[in-house]
Design a protein around this nucleic acid. Structure first.
Lengths: 149, 149
DNA sequence: TATTATACTTGCATATTGCAATTAATTCGG
DNA sequence: CCGAATTAATTGCAATATGCAAGTATAATA
């Protein structure tokens, strides 16, 4: 059997390209990291700064600054928690939600285009496989450990 | 059906984590980009500076400097071509080959661990799916365009 | 031979990153 | 209840990475 790593190396690189392109929306350009942040804030329930940073595996100090940029761009809102005023929860502004939704659509369109080169059976197989892969990585102790999914 | 993008977002992020961890070998620490460069030089036949840069989608000036680092680390060799002395081909040094092989082993070990959470049928399905995905992305005009694979 | 094109490198200005230290708020031990 | 230790988040700073514009060297073309 051929080198498994080879297959995954190519795949991840290609997705890197895809992500690079897919990140401008609503007038403002969004970097890849920024799109991941928007995604994560959108999918967690009132997450704190730390929670999102950890989910993304980003250093907390770096993340703090990334959030500052997104706040300046008026895409993210930071609210102190009354119970514990050290903690600040993050949420998307209306504009942030719009941008996140737009990126989501774009990515789905790109993926749709990729899948258009397969038949329905292959497409279903691939989607099921990605799901399997995610589950397996979630179980893995060696790597890939993220609280999400 | 659930959001396809969501599945791929999680997957690519997890692979990002995996890659982050998997890149120290033979005493020296290797960054993610550097590991991709080593991989690519190893898999192309006497590639020029430009060819590798393009394969990786990196700006040529940035790439030039990345290669300089790798040469300093004694992992890569740059040789001018006699026929056309503007062109320089890249190759791995003995140490570079060793490091590339080590990273390859590490990555395969990680992937093996991930696959250990599946049965054989699932594993084969997933590998076949990744292959399908690579082929589809190669065909895609919208994105992911790379000379490789 | 002069112009144009190509392959690669450097200058500079900007952006990203992470460690160490700081601030502010909370919890714990006596 | 007060001071020490803990936690969440931010800033200082230094190192690294990035890309555009310009430069150098070689080759192709007219």
């Amino acid at each position: 059997m051929e080198n498994v790593r080879e297959l995954f190396q190519i795949m991840t690189r290609r997705f890197g390209f895809l992500n690079k392109n897919c990140c401008s929306a609503g007038g403002c350009d969004i970097s890849l990291v920024q799109s991941h942040i928007l995604y994560e804030i959108d999918h967690q329930h009132k997450p704190s700064v730390q929670q999102v940073a950890e989910a993304l595996g980003t250093d907390i100090t770096t993340f703090s600054r990334q959030i500052q940029s997104l706040i300046k761009m008026n895409l993210v809102k930071k609210t102190p928690v009354p119970d514990d005023r050290r903690v600040h929860v993050l949420s998307l502004t209306t504009e942030g939600k719009y941008v996140a939704a737009t990126i989501d659509q774009q990515m789905n369109a790109y993926l749709g285009e990729v899948f258009s080169h397969m038949n329905d059976f292959e497409k279903e197989t691939v989607i099921r496989s990605v799901k399997l892969l995610n589950e397996a990585m979630a179980k893995s102790s060696l790597c890939c450990t993220t609280p999400i999914g």
